[in-house]
Design a protein around this nucleic acid. Structure first.
Lengths: 335, 335
DNA sequence: TTGTAGGCGTTATCAC
DNA sequence: GTGATAACGCCTACAA
C-alpha cells in the first residue's frame, strides 16, 4: 500500500515475485505470458485488491477510456424529455461491457459554449455524443469540427460539414401518421407542428406537407413549442381557423395531450369527430383519455447505435454519414 | 506541440521565458507570482491554447476533479423518471462553476454491483452521489461504507450506518395532501400507495396513515408500482373494495392519471364525487382532465444540495446526517 | 517469456 | 518570487 491506500503495480510485482512490466502485461491481457506467471500475478492482484490507476494509465496511453455525452443547451427541458432518458439508457447499456465511462457535459448557461469546447478539446475524453435539440448554429458547427470522434443524435441543423449522426426518420414517421388518418377516411387533416429550428419539428411538418400535397389536401398548420401549454395554444388557434377538421396530427405526445383536452372542451369527440395521432409514444400516450394513437421511435436502439458508432470512430473508423431508423405507428383509441 | 497535439506546461514555460514551476503557479492561481510574470505566462497560454492535462495532474494531486452520480439499479424506469432528470439538472448546475465533471455510473444489469463498487473504490472519482429508488440492501450498504465521500438522494432503506442524504419530507407531503382532502370536507379517503421498498412509497403511506389515525378514519389502501398500469389496477381494486370513497391520495402523479380515468369510467365525477390529490407535480399533472392537485417537491434544489454536500465532504467536512426539505401542495382542479 | 529503463505532464519540496 | 528536481503509477520499446 502506498500512502493513499491503493496498491500499485509495483507492489503487486513484489508480491508475485515478478517485474512491473509482467504485471502490466497480465493486467492488459497480453498473450505472451506463461500461464503459471499469470496465475501468480492474478493471485497477488486479488490479495492486494489492486486496481489500475486510471490517471497514470491515461498519462501514458493518451486514452482516457471515457466518452462524453454532451447537451449543448441550458434548456432544462432536454433533461425531462423522455427522449433524452431513452438515449442515455441505450448509450450506457452499450458502453457498460466496455471499459469506457460516460461523462455528462451540460452547457450550464446560455452562451457558455466555450467551456464545453475547451473541455472537449482538452483531451479529457476519447469522443463525444452530442444530444442537441435546437439548431444552435455556431456551437453545433464548432462541435462538428472538433478534432475528436463525434456523433450527433439527430442530424444537426445548420452544420455544413459531413457528420456522423443517428436519427429516426421523422419525415416518414409523420407520413405514416397522416396516411393512416387518410386511410380511416379523414379528409380535412390539420397538424400542430413543432419549432422549425429542431429537426423533429421541421421534418415532421415536412412529412405532413408531403402527404397533404399528394392527397390534394389544404394545409392546416399551427405551431407549438412541444410543451403542453404550447400545444394548447396551438390547438386553440388551429380549430378557430379550421373548425371543420376531422383529423389531427400532433408533432409530439406532450402537445397532443392538451390538444385532446381542447377538443373535449369544444365538445368534439375523439376519435369520432376528430381523429388524433401523436408522436413519440411516451408514457403519456397511455394515460390520456382516449389513449393516444402515436408514432413510436426506437429510442433505446438509437442510443445504442450512437455509442457503437462512437466506439468505432474512436477505434479509427471513418464514419461521417447519417444513419436513419424507421418508426412504427402504434394504433390505440384516439384514431 | 507534442505529438498528440496539446501544448504542455513545458512549452508554455519556454515561450514565456520562465520555468515550468512558475507556469504551474499561474495556472493554479498562486498569489505569490509577480503581476508582470503572470501576464507573460497568460499571454503564452493564450497563444498556445494551453489546457492542463487532467491525467498528469490527477496523478500527482490524487484528485480527479470528477464526481460520480450513480444509479445502482438496472431498472430503466429510473431514467425516464422526471425526478432523476430534475436531480441531474440541480447537480450539474451546481457543479458547473466548479472544475468538477460529472461521471454517470449505471448498473448495467441486475447483480453487476461489483463493477460499480470496484470503480468507486478505484479512485476514479472524488466522491459520489447515489440516486437509488429501491432498497437494495447489500449494494446500498456497501456503497455507504465505501472509503469515499458519498451522499444519498433519499434516505437509503436498510442501511444501518449514518449517511449523508437529502430528501423531501415525504411523510409531511402526504399529510398535507390528506389533510387538505379533510379540509374540503372529505371523510372517506383512500390511498394508492407505492412499493414499500422505496422510501417514497413507504413514507407517503405513513403520512396517509398518520392522518387517518388522527382523524379516526378507516384506512383504505391499495398498492401500485408507480407506473400508469399499476395505478390503474390499484384504482380498480381500491374502488371495488371501497366504492364509497370521496377522497383519494395517490402516491405519484403517474398512477394518479390512470386513477382519474378509472374514476371517469365508473361515472364518478372528479372532484365532485371523488377529490384526487397526486404527488410529484410532474408535467402530467397539467395534462390530465381535470388538472391534478398534487404535492410538489423542490427537486432541483435537492439536486443542488446533493452536489453542495458532496463538495463539502470532499473538502473534508464530516457530514453524515439526513437533510430534509418541505413539500408544497399545488391546488388545481382535481381536489 | 521476462526484465530494465525511460518518459508521459503535473505538482510539490526544496533551495536560491 | 522563482527555478531545479523528484515523485506520481503506468506502459512500452529494447535488451536479455
Amino acid at each position: 500500500m502506498n500512502d493513499s491506500g491503493s496498491p500499485t503495480l509495483e507492489q503487486v510485482a513484489a508480491l508475485a515475485g515478478v517485474s512491473r512490466a509482467t504485471v502490466s502485461r497480465v493486467v492488459n491481457g497480453s498473450p505472451k505470458v506463461l500461464p503459471h506467471t499469470v496465475a501468480a500475478v492474478e493471485r497477488a492482484i486479488g490479495q492486494l485488491g489492486y486496481v489500475p490507476n486510471r490517471a497514470a494509465r491515461a498519462l501514458v496511453t493518451r486514452r482516457t477510456d471515457s466518452v462524453a455525452i454532451v447537451v449543448p443547451e441550458p434548456d432544462s427541458r432536454v433533461f425531462s424529455d423522455p427522449f433524452f432518458a431513452g438515449i442515455l439508457r441505450g448509450v450506457s447499456h452499450t458502453l457498460a461491457p466496455t471499459s469506457s465511462q460516460l461523462v455528462l457535459l451540460i452547457e450550464p448557461a446560455e452562451g457558455d459554449d466555450q467551456r464545453l469546447l475547451r473541455y472537449l478539446r482538452g483531451g479529457h475524453v476519447d469522443g463525444a455524443i452530442i444530444v442537441s435539440h435546437h439548431g444552435r448554429d455556431n456551437v453545433l458547427q464548432e462541435l462538428a469540427q472538433l478534432p475528436l470522434p463525434i456523433v450527433f443524435s439527430a442530424r444537426p441543423l445548420g452544420v455544413d460539414v459531413p457528420v456522423a449522426s443517428v436519427d429516426v426518420d421523422n419525415v416518414e414517421g409523420a407520413r405514416k401518421a397522416v396516411e393512416y388518418l387518410l386511410s380511416i377516411g379523414r379528409r380535412r387533416i390539420g397538424t400542430i407542428a413543432g419549432p422549425l429550428d429542431m429537426t423533429a419539428g421541421l421534418d415532421r411538418l415536412t412529412g405532413y406537407q408531403d402527404v397533404a400535397r399528394e392527397a390534394g389536401m389544404t394545409e392546416a398548420v399551427a405551431f407549438g413549442d412541444f410543451t403542453p401549454d404550447g400545444g394548447e395554444q396551438a390547438a386553440l388557434r388551429l380549430f378557430d381557423e379550421f373548425p371543420d377538421l376531422d383529423g389531427l396530427f400532433v408533432a409530439n405526445d406532450l402537445m397532443a395531450t392538451t390538444a385532446l383536452r381542447v377538443l373535449s372542451q369544444r365538445g368534439r369527440k375523439v376519435p369520432a369527430d376528430v381523429a388524433v395521432v401523436g408522436f413519440d409514444d411516451s408514457v403519456m400516450a397511455t394515460t390520456t383519455t382516449p389513449k393516444l394513437t402515436t408514432v413510436r421511435q426506437p429510442i433505446e436502439k438509437l442510443g445504442a447505435r450512437l455509442a457503437e458508432i462512437l466506439l468505432a470512430k474512436i477505434a479509427g473508423a471513418e464514419l461521417t454519414s447519417p444513419e436513419v431508423y424507421p418508426t412504427e405507428l402504434i394504433v390505440r383509441d384516439s384514431a
